[in-house]
Simulated scan of single mutants.
Amino acid sequence: MHESSDSPFTLDRHRLRRAFERAAASYDQAAVLQREIGGRLLERLDLIKLKPESIVDVGCGTGAITAALLKKYRKARVIGLELAPAMVAAARRRAPWLRTLHGVVGEAEALPLAAASCDLIFSNLALQWMLDLDRVFAEFQRVLKPGGVLLFSTLGPDTLLELRRAWAVADSYHHVNAFFDMHDIGDALMRTRLAEPVMDTERLTLTYRDVDGLISDLRALGAGNVTAGRPRGLTSRGRMRVMRETYERYRRPDGLLPVACEVVYGHAWGPLTSPSRSRTASPAVFPLSQLRHRGWKED
């Protein structure tokens, strides 16, 4: 369930960590999609009868959703886990009055948590940065208590589709990260014996005045190109011009450039405690919806 080490789509983990380190100061300004999807994921918790004592937010970024989790479950111990120390520091600064909000530097593939220690694992738009989903979900299964819940969102393969196609005309390098398909994610959940996995997708559209604004925001988020197949030197002005001209073909009648985002949602239960929860559900696709922003900045 992961790319081989010689795949052009393999993620450079060290480069990714450095990108997140640099992005800690600019992340909040550009994280409109992350906040929107995080809010939608939080709303899904209203449908689950759960009084968690221990929560881990995997890929917490600068802690906005982590703090929201604590406000929702005030008696819970909430842990925010992030790859980059600067992101964890930003999360701690965000809410110093939240004494039960803990920031931990670590990776989802090797959670620094005891077995059967969490009632809720929450992960918003972070799994797309994981190298091995089977290993990640095995760790989630390990730390979930019996009857615990996993709830996550990630990005599907149609995300940044226009940018991917524009770069494909300009050169043969990989400029956009690859994303797992919903069905592959669902299969990984079942292979790691997480119970009753349910998947659905939603397609959103962001808008920008120009492609440079999109690229700037991706860098501000630490979401630039960290694949093995990326160009190793500076991209020439000629290739940049071809990419921009190709992207212009997508410009809408309102004068804005669209940015496709395929959001994948999923939830599953932890280790089984009785035969009544032994079934697994096939992934299901729900009706599509659209969300349009004037760029990635709040109105």
Rank of each mutant, 00 (worst) to 15 (best):
L69V: 06
L41T: 07
S172I: 13
L163I: 03
R135V: 00
H102K: 14
E245G: 02
W296I: 11
R15T: 03
K71N: 13
I37F: 02
E245A: 13
R44K: 07
D57I: 01
C60N: 05
P197A: 15
K71Y: 05
V263T: 10
L131A: 10
L45A: 05
G38I: 00
M240G: 08
D187A: 15
D212Y: 07
G103R: 07
Q29C: 05
E262F: 00
A260D: 05
P197H: 15
D187L: 14
V285C: 12
E202M: 14
Y247K: 02
L41N: 05
V104C: 10
L234V: 13
D57F: 00
F152W: 00
P112Y: 12
A166L: 06
A24V: 08
A90F: 06
P287E: 09
G224I: 08
V285H: 13
G61M: 03
V149L: 03
R252N: 06
G61H: 06
H2Q: 08
G255Y: 11
Y73G: 02
S282Y: 09
Y27H: 07
R142T: 06
D6G: 02
G238Y: 14
A90M: 08
L194R: 15
A25Y: 11
L45F: 04
E3V: 04
R252P: 01
R99L: 12
G266M: 02
P287H: 11
S276V: 03
L101K: 12
R237E: 14
L234T: 12
A23G: 05
N124V: 01
Y247P: 02
R135A: 04
R18W: 04
K51P: 01
T159P: 00
T66Q: 07
A64N: 03
W129T: 00
M182R: 15
T159E: 02
D57R: 01
G233W: 08
A25S: 13
M243I: 05
M87D: 11
L113E: 08
A68I: 04
M190S: 15
G103T: 11
R164L: 05
G103M: 12
H183G: 10
N124E: 03
A284H: 13
A115S: 12
A115E: 10
A25T: 10
K51A: 09
I65E: 06
K49H: 03
M190L: 14
Y247E: 03
L45R: 04
P283E: 11
V198D: 15
L189I: 12
R13T: 10
G255L: 08
L101F: 12
A64P: 00
G148S: 01
V259H: 01
I55F: 08
